[in-house]
């Protein structure tokens, strides 16, 4: 066996706390949930082996289909919009120089500091179809706004609107990438007669493609795991749970309901593994596709 170099050994020593945490708090529960997903378990009694019954049930459960539909719909709307908007914000931030720059960067990041629960409650007020400020604003232009919080066709778009309020992290990552684009490249292109759009398209975008790729993956994953705000808005108390039906039923919300409302912990574990596999698959596809589109500075492109 090849002997580890002393530096490597020390590296592992320093990694140890994290590794222990990984095994106990991440890998452990995941393995436990995998085992539970093949059992019937109500949290009170002991788990009983149920074979693949939970997975079979998933395939038949109309609510799972609805929850997947809602979650995918949200993800498809949220990810492109969030990244386009965040990129626009980052480009604006990148133009601001001098003393004001720090202040603006802070302001753009502020929404990320707000607890999700508070955001959910706030937007329930803002989006209210009868008295909310969003519709009052639309009213200024003579538009009669939809019933964002109660019309099943508008609940998901309303949640997307809410999600676009908080772009702090994505903006910061893209902004940092923009700062790293060497000015010479842009200047050289300008001398060659490239216009603003051409420079953005041919210089800036390829240079930040690795950051873009990263935020696409991260945003996709968090969208598929959407829970906090939606739960606060539409499932947070008994009245809320009675009032909105499945219009805002996201996958993780349904998982939570099965686990803690209906005490089907085995089924909830199966749902969790279903989600894990789907996310793993999507991420794999994204990495494969990304490898073709993303430019890393270290590599030579053919």
């Amino acid at each position: 066996m090849r002997r580890l170099r002393p530096e490597t050994r020390w590296a592992y020593v320093f990694l140890l706390p994290w590794l222990i945490g990984l095994v106990i708090f991440q890998a452990g529960p995941m393995v436990a949930s995998l085992v539970l997903s093949f059992t019937e378990y109500d949290l009170i009694g002991s788990p009983e082996f149920a074979g693949t019954a939970n997975y079979a049930r998933m395939a038949e459960d109309p609510k799972v289909a609805r929850a997947i539909g809602n979650t995918v719909f949200y993800t498809l709307l949220h990810v492109p919009l969030a990244i386009a908007l965040a990129l626009a914000l980052a480009l604006v931030l990148n133009r601001i120089t001098g003393r004001a720059a720090g202040a603006f960067r802070t302001i753009f990041y502020l929404p990320s500091m707000t607890p999700y629960v508070a955001v959910g409650v706030l937007f329930l007020f803002l989006l209210n179809g009868q008295a909310g400020m969003v519709n009052q604003f639309l009213g200024l232009f003579g538009i009669e706004g939809p019933q964002w919080t109660t019309d099943p066709d508008w609940v998901l778009p309303g949640i997307v609107v809410m999600s676009l309020w908080n772009l702090g992290s994505t903006t910061i990552i893209l902004f940092a990438a923009l700062r790293n684009v060497p000015r010479e490249l842009s200047e050289a292109a300008m001398i060659d007669g490239a216009g603003t759009w051409q420079r953005f398209r041919a210089v800036t975008l390829p240079m930040i493609s690795s950051a873009l790729f990263f935020v696409v993956i991260i945003n996709t994953i968090t969208s598929l795991q959407m829970f906090d705000q939606v739960y606060t808005m539409f499932f947070g108390n008994q009245t809320a749970q009675q009032s909105y039906g499945d219009a805002a039923l996201f996958y993780v919300v349904y998982l939570f309901q099965q686990a803690f409302q209906f005490l089907n912990m085995g089924y909830a574990s199966a749902l969790a593994w279903g989600l894990f596999l789907v996310i793993a698959a999507i991420t794999l596809v994204q990495v494969k596709v990304g490898n073709r589109l993303v430019y890393y500075e270290a590599e030579e492109r053919a």
Binding site: F25, Q26, P29, M30, A32, S33, L36, I221, L224, Q225, F227, V252, L255, F256, A259, M265, A268, S269, A272, W273, L275, F276, I279, A280, T283
Partner: peptide
């Protein structure tokens, strides 16, 4: 990527 699974199931 496994956060949803892990967080829901840490409890488990």
């Amino acid at each position: 990527p496994a956060r949803a699974a892990a967080s829901a199931l840490a409890t488990v």
